[in-house]
Design a protein around this nucleic acid. Structure first.
Lengths: 223, 223
DNA sequence: GAGCAACTTGACCGAACGGTCAATCTTGTT
DNA sequence: AACAAGATTGACCGTTCGGTCAAGTTGCTC
């Protein structure tokens, strides 16, 4: 799956307007696909969410499947960028803290994107299978080697790196994907910034202490 | 949502055969709804999976929605039973270990049930909303008081109990719900018993050490 | 074994689905 | 101002959807 980024286009031009429309449609589609899933979303529903005629969506994307994969594609760009802090020369506690905070922040600010991804994987990743087995797997292997290096140097306790990633993904994304459950249990009309802060604290606590690293409650980077 | 259990029926009787059929249809529906979601599953697909004519499913359940909610209902019975070990008089480490092992075992043996539940919550829990806000919320409040008791007695470190439950649910259920992702990253045709054992070890490590409790790798109850 | 309720099922229905298309309007270029 | 390429859209199409129904079969009761 190729991922190309829009280079800076002269504002107001024909191609620029095209990018605007496509971005507008994808933003609406993210909401609809997140709430209804691929099968549950209808082209007329997607069109209504974008406030455009259905035929217009077909003009830009051809098929529902193409619109969906274009959306997945745009989401993956975000997905891969959060592991930057995990590098051999960094401090393990600071690197993991930064990674977890980034994932939690992403769950808070882009819950729909997380849900679209979750729905795709939940149903067997029919469109994302090759990405998972390719780019994601390679990324996990690379970052796992970094963790193994830290373990070998005695800078953290021996934990299985891939499974640690699974645990971190699960705990952080649950605040987006299973938000309905968390809201119900906490009896909130919607999750507050404080709920997310408490969740972040707990995830940091479990991961850092689980890896034998120091953890101090409520700590922010730089304190 | 009422939950009634089949009392022992005389084998081979009229009512007994009816229960058999219903159980057979629900078992097939669990697979189909897990793989396709509510909207993605079709009545003809459900009928094919159960190897019965479509009209026969309508005879027993009336509508697709009724079949789906009957399935959810049967799943919830399992869901609520795993927290039994969390009682004030038990040892915190042993209670949490038993709970996590139960949840992990359930992810391994009933992955489809987990996926159906996950799909429902992911899309806003339209049918499960009242259960989440009712029975589940009450259960979490009750068990949270147990944890708070342990914390007050100094038997574990202060962690936010509801968020701890969210974390445990997320980490354990991820081995069922996001199995496609884990399989891809680990490069497996399917998850092995050892993969689950390593996952269990990691979840136990994070939770026990995160709560300031002792953790020894590979430990089983009674060792 | 007659009668009846429970069950089974192929054929069918209106609605909604994803997708197509030709007619029309807009816009950058010359 | 003229023109071509791009963009817009209402109307339409074949398929599949969830659901219904009537005709037929089965099995329990008396």
């Amino acid at each position: 799956m190729a991922r190309k980024e829009a280079q800076t286009l002269p504002t107001g031009g024909r191609a620029w307007q095209r990018q605007q429309r496509i971005g507008h449609i994808l933003a609406a589609a993210e909401r609809v696909f997140a709430e209804a899933g691929f099968e549950g979303a209808s082209m007329s529903g997607l069109a209504a969410a974008a406030d455009l005629p259905k035929a217009n969506l077909h003009y830009y994307f051809g098929t529902k499947e193409a619109l969906y994969t274009a959306l997945l594609d745009s989401i993956l760009t975000l997905w891969l960028s959060a592991t930057d802090s995990i590098r051999p020369e960094n401090d393990p506690a600071e690197a993991l803290t930064a990674y977890i905070r980034a994932k939690m922040h992403w769950s808070r600010t882009r819950p729909h994107a997380s849900k679209v991804f979750a729905n795709e994987v939940l149903h067997g990743a029919p469109y994302l299978g090759s990405y998972l087995a390719g780019e994601l797997r390679a990324l996990v292997q690379e970052k796992s080697r970094v963790l193994e290096g830290w373990i070998a140097e005695g800078r953290m306790e021996p934990v299985d790196p891939p499974h640690l990633f699974f645990a971190i993904w699960a705990m952080t994304q649950t605040y987006a994907d299973f938000e309905a459950q968390i809201r119900a249990v906490l009896d909130r009309p919607e999750l507050t910034a404080q709920d997310h802060a408490q969740g972040t604290d707990l995830v940091l606590r479990l991961v850092l202490k689980g890896c034998g690293l120091r953890f101090s409650e409520g700590k922010r980077l730089g304190e």
